[in-house]
């Protein structure tokens, strides 16, 4: 079952086009949404949250239109910034946010607040970027949401808290009813957590697969330039060449590539390797 379905969504915004977006987020899993800055990730999340209402296409959350505000009872959201007046305090926000959720849990709120070491009565403007992110997380988690949507939640967090956050998310995933949709450009965060990957580039979905499929299907091939000429660039999804040799992203059975006598190096690509190599050619700088 899919918790989020995005169908044929197109919208022209100031900076760029979202072109015929189609993807879905399965229930019970963590889906990582990756792409460069400016690739359309944040716009997509805002469309799902009905903050941006595209003129074309359809977005369904929990099976009903995302313009139905009732579905938000079951969603916890974390944006890349805390959009709240900076002279407010957590205690002040609590007063008007808590009553809005039917499933709000004060015990949970208190548990996360003390774990995140957040002060109740200090103005948000005195908070560090990490504290603001934790504040967003606090309000997102305190109503025990079935769907957690996060835009760059680890940005601004120190490495230790980042790991702790990953532990926390993994603990949340013990519940098979829970779904996490997680947007990031720090792909390391996803290596151990993500079940599915959606890769967006330039407003278009480039890839949508499970992590095990990615592990099986994609290979990072390193070899000499002669080998590259022998195999042909077209065999690869993307190639980067230097004087010393080439690195290419290959999809399929890598043993079919075995060329001449010289062995090539076959490695497991990281998500970062994949993003880098699958990116359109126009992005490579000519120095």
């Amino acid at each position: 079952m899919d918790v989020i379905e995005v169908r044929n969504v197109s919208e022209k915004l100031d900076q760029f086009w979202i072109k015929d977006l189609n993807f879905s987020i399965p229930k019970g899993y963590v889906t990582g949404f990756i792409g460069q800055n400016g690739s359309g990730k944040t716009t997509t999340i805002q469309m799902i949250m009905d903050v941006i209402r595209p003129k074309q296409g359809e977005i369904k959350v929990f099976g009903s239109s995302n313009t139905n505000s009732e579905i938000k009872q079951r969603i916890g959201f974390v944006y890349d910034e805390l959009y709240m007046y900076d002279n407010f305090t957590i205690s002040h926000m609590y007063k008007f946010i808590a009553p809005l959720y039917e499933s709000w849990d004060d015990t949970l709120f208190e548990r996360y607040r003390s774990a995140f070491e957040l002060p109740m009565k200090q103005k948000l403007k005195t908070f560090s970027k990490g504290m603001k992110m934790k504040t967003s997380l606090l309000f997102a988690l305190a109503h025990d949401p079935e769907l957690l949507i996060m835009d760059e939640p680890t940005a601004g967090l120190d490495p230790v808290f980042r790991r702790e956050l990953m532990d926390l998310l993994q603990e949340l995933m013990l519940d098979s009813e829970r779904t996490i949709f997680f947007l990031t450009h720090i792909t390391n965060d996803l290596d151990r957590l993500a079940d599915y990957i959606v890769f967006i580039d330039n407003g278009q979905i480039k890839l949508q697969k499970s992590m095990t499929e990615i592990e099986e299907e994609f290979h990072l091939i390193k070899g000499t330039r002669e080998q590259l000429t022998a195999i042909g660039r077209d065999a690869f999804l993307g190639v980067r060449e230097t004087k010393q040799g080439f690195t290419g992203l290959f999809q399929g059975d890598s043993t079919t590539l075995a060329s001449n006598n010289h062995e090539m190096i076959v490695e497991k690509p990281s998500l970062e390797d994949m993003m880098y190599l699958m990116k359109g050619k126009k992005g490579s700088w000519q120095l």
């Binding site: 505000s69 938000k72 910034e81 805390l82 946010i97 959720y101």
Partner: peptide, 15 residues
């Protein structure tokens, strides 16, 4: 300035 509507309308409340 604080894009407060973006936050508020992400809460369970219709436009």
């Amino acid at each position: 300035k604080f894009k407060a509507q973006r936050f508020v309308l992400s809460l369970p409340i219709s436009r």
